[in-house]
Amino acid sequence: MDICTKVALRQRLLESGKITLYFDYYPPIRNPKTNKMQRHEYLGIYLYGNPTNKVQRDFNQTMLEKGELLRCRRQEQVINRQFGFIDHSQQKEDFLAYYEEYAKRQSNTKWRISYKHFQIFTGGKCTFGEITLDLCNKFRDYLLNAKQLKHTKKKLSKNAASGYFSTFRALLKKAYKEKLLTENVNDFLEYIEWDDVVKEFLNQDELIRLAQTPCDSDVLRRASLFSCLTGLRFSDILNLDWKNIQEIAGIGLCVVIKTQKTKTAATLPLCEDAIELIGERKTGKVFPGFKKSLTAKPLADWIKAANIDKHITFHCARHTYATLLITNGTDIYTVSKMLTHKNVATTQIYAEVVNQKKRDVANSISLK
Rank of each mutant, 00 (worst) to 15 (best):
N355I: 09
E200C: 06
E200N: 15
S89E: 12
D58V: 14
Y115L: 05
T259Q: 01
Q119C: 13
E130D: 10
E193C: 08
L210T: 02
V286R: 02
Y115S: 02
T5N: 03
L339G: 02
F287P: 01
P27N: 04
E93H: 09
Y22S: 07
N159H: 01
C228G: 02
H311R: 13
N328D: 11
L202R: 03
M338H: 10
G163H: 11
R169S: 07
F85D: 08
D205Q: 13
E130Y: 05
E200A: 11
Y99I: 11
E15K: 15
K155D: 12
S336A: 10
L14Q: 14
M338I: 06
V353A: 07
D24A: 09
Y191N: 15
H319A: 01
E272K: 12
R12L: 09
A8I: 15
T152Y: 08
K92S: 13
E247D: 15
K92M: 14
V361M: 14
P32I: 03
G67A: 04
D205G: 14
L133Y: 12
I79R: 10
I79T: 12
L144S: 07
G252M: 04
E272F: 10
W194G: 09
G123I: 03
D331S: 05
E100W: 11
S217M: 07
F139A: 02
P288Q: 04
R73D: 12
I248Q: 11
I19W: 06
V198Y: 15
Y164A: 06
S366R: 12
Y321S: 04
D196C: 08
Q356G: 11
A249R: 11
S157N: 02
L232C: 07
G129M: 05
E280D: 12
L339I: 02
R112L: 01
G84R: 00
N108F: 05
S217R: 11
A223E: 01
D94I: 03
Q11A: 10
S162H: 09
P51E: 04
M37C: 11
I251E: 11
E206V: 04
G289M: 04
E76S: 14
R140N: 08
A296C: 12
S114G: 09
V185K: 02
T62A: 10
K150Q: 12
G252H: 04
L14H: 09
A274H: 01
K158W: 06
K261Y: 03
T320D: 01
L220F: 03
V78W: 01
G17Q: 02
H341A: 05
R209E: 06
T152Q: 15
A345V: 13
G67T: 06
R140A: 00
L180S: 08
E183L: 10
C215D: 03
L210M: 03
T323W: 00
T109S: 15
I326N: 03
C126H: 00
Y25M: 05
L232R: 00
I245H: 00
V354R: 03
A211C: 11
K310N: 05
S217I: 08
R221N: 07
L69F: 15
V344K: 02
A362W: 05
T127Q: 03
I332A: 05
A8Q: 14
V344F: 07
D24G: 06
N307T: 14
I29A: 02
T167R: 15
N328V: 08
Y321F: 15
D331W: 07
L149R: 07
V219Q: 04
L367G: 15
I192S: 03
L299E: 00
K304I: 10
G250C: 02
N244T: 04
L339R: 01
S107D: 13
R74C: 06
D195G: 05
K304L: 10
Y46G: 05
